[in-house]
Write a protein that binds this DNA or RNA. Structure first.
Length: 392
DNA sequence: ATCGTCGGACAATCAAGCTA
DNA sequence: AGCTTGATTGTCCGACGATA
């Protein structure tokens, strides 16, 4: 059964799937009492660095195994930030009736051993919320999250209410977990905080959440989970991750994150087809970025999607919004490439310098356009082939 | 087979806010 | 004052690639 599950390709099954009765081997009534994962209060620096299980002994068993006894010392905890305003809490409900929602039950101190710490404080089960990505080694993620890897298709993170976090909290507290799990979630896009870089496609279908690209090498059509471009031209994207964690509501989808890893072909077939325009845009952008290293992130919106133009809003790291007094020629070319034709034209009509530049580079641009067209055609043919073969 | 790496789920912690 | 909430910080599972 599990092998046929649509999410069976997940690196790890989402927790709400693990809570599935058959897989967990328990009835739905005792699902919330799943045993907690035990963890030590303070892992040693070696285990912490390796993200491996530690124990309370010093040296710990892992350090003994790898002969790291000397360096097996407790890691230091960062002091918690103070003075963080939290806003008004939601109103507490008086526990007047017997029908306590599962959500409320989960908030109670559990009877599981280890849930009460040495000081006697009940561990707040609290919410499993999005947390800022933490350091693995030096206080920062070595690789920012938010990318699609090869053949990865984003799981729709569905907020069943289509609300933001604050709404989630209020609604989740009122909704019994079981009832919520029985509700088929409608895929809606997770709306993250204002992104540094955003990449989302305009489409009539419910869209995957916006993705936060990391480098210019990431897939520009990643929102579709399709092809990506790299500095060396269109290809399957570099290994990368996709991540999105909407607020935890304990509801299906909203509690999970991850990506489905599929073979490249599968991802081609399973994902929404790119439009010719989006392909061209991707290739053009990758070519542009190949010519110039990325400056600091700045979002541009090259075109406005219309009903007939499903071209995604594409926010490119590194491109100036409007180089009003920018003398840099490359930047000007970049912007011209990314502007919609009308916009680009009107801008060039008032800028003689860029006119000169564009004529100087006419041949090069012509050649590039030609190669773009060729590549676009190839890509589309490939796509159509895969599509038709999958239908057979 | 083993090891290192790393994303992210899960757990622990505790200050802010709430209530009696 | 004691309890609750929820944000922050830490642990480590499990997948993956590299290497022996």
């Amino acid at each position: 059964m599990a092998a046929e599950h649509p999410f069976s390709s997940l690196r790890r099954a989402p927790s709400w799937m693990l809570a599935n009765d058959e897989e967990a081997g328990r009835s739905s009534s005792d699902a919330p009492s799943r045993t907690k994962r035990a963890q030590v209060k303070n892992a040693c620096v070696n285990c912490q660095r390796a993200c491996k299980k530690c124990d309370s002994g010093r040296p710990c068993q892992r350090c003994v195994k790898y002969n790291l006894q000397e360096s097996c010392v407790d890691s230091k905890r960062k002091p918690r930030k103070k003075g963080i305003k939290r806003g008004p809490y939601k109103k507490r409900k008086k526990n007047t009736d017997d029908t306590v929602s599962l959500d409320t039950q989960q908030q109670q101190p559990t009877e599981v051993a280890g849930s009460v710490d040495s000081s006697g404080q009940a561990s707040g089960s609290g919410s499993v919320r999005a947390r800022s990505t933490m350091s693995k080694r030096s206080g920062e993620r070595t690789r920012p999250r938010g990318l699609l890897g090869p053949g990865m298709v984003p799981i729709l993170q569905s907020d069943p209410h289509g609300n933001d976090d604050s709404d989630d909290q209020s609604s989740s507290s009122d909704t019994p977990l079981v009832a919520a799990r029985q509700t088929q979630p409608q895929p809606t896009a997770y709306r993250p905080p204002p992104p540094r870089l955003s990449l989302h496609a305009a489409s009539s279908a419910p869209q995957p959440a916006r993705l936060l690209p990391e480098t210019p090498t990431m897939g520009l059509t990643a929102a579709f989970g399709t092809l990506a471009t790299t500095p060396s031209g269109p290809s399957f994207p570099q290994p990368a991750r996709y991540s999105q964690r909407p607020s935890s509501t304990g509801l299906p989808f909203a509690h999970t994150s991850g990506a489905i890893r599929l073979p490249p072909i599968a991802s081609l077939v399973c994902s929404a087809p790119p439009t010719p325009l989006s392909l061209l845009t991707d290739i053009a952008l990758s070519s542009t970025q190949r010519r110039q290293p990325p400056p600091p992130a700045a979002a541009v919106r090259p075109s406005t999607p219309t009903a007939n133009n499903p071209a995604p809003y594409i926010s490119i790291p590194s491109l100036p919004d409007r180089p009003s007094s920018q003398p840099a020629e490359d930047t000007e070319q970049q912007s011209a490439l990314l502007q919609p034709p009308d916009d680009a034209h009107s801008r060039h009509s008032t800028t003689t310098a860029s006119d000169d530049q564009s004529s100087n580079n006419g041949d090069a641009d012509l050649a590039m356009n030609s190669s773009i067209n060729n590549l676009s055609n190839k890509l589309q043919n490939t796509f159509l082939d895969q599509d038709s073969s999958s239908e057979l």
